[in-house]
Amino acid sequence: MQMVLPFKDKLYRLALRIVGSVQEAEDVIQEVLIKVWKKKEQFVELDNKEAWCMTVTRNLCIDKIRARKMRTSDVTEHYDIRDKTMTPSEMSVSNDRMQQILDLINSLPEKQKTVVQLRDIEGYSYKEISAITELKLDQVKVYLHRARLTLREQITKKAI
């Protein structure tokens, strides 16, 4: 179980990105940890434990969304996105912009959103993302490309 600790926050952030609420994300992480415990013999043997946990997290999130027909776009009330290094006035303007971009990311289709999370926020390689999402390498790039295209278009159009 201790082996999960180094990437626990990454699992949480991925869950939060997909399910959209702190409560749900924490539930998912609990489920992942219990799954790791139940499969402890096999888990120890795994080469890439982090990728395995990320895959399990994503699958559990998708199950949760399907089961509860949950909306994933409204995450703004659940967590604070403020950059603590800014002055209050800068923070207010920047918060609005950042909030709009965050809403934009959260409104992307699940696969695009997940790929953005894994690449642009967590910094995984395309190969690792392919392993985590069980998508082909080309598909990963296609989804990421579509997501970045949307972000670029929206950012420049609205001049966020």
Binding site: M98, D120, I121
Partner: peptide
Amino acid sequence: SLFSLLRTQSNLSTSITL
């Protein structure tokens, strides 16, 4: 804003314990 957001998002953490 986009890159600031990506940076702050990568620092989110959880207090969940084992």
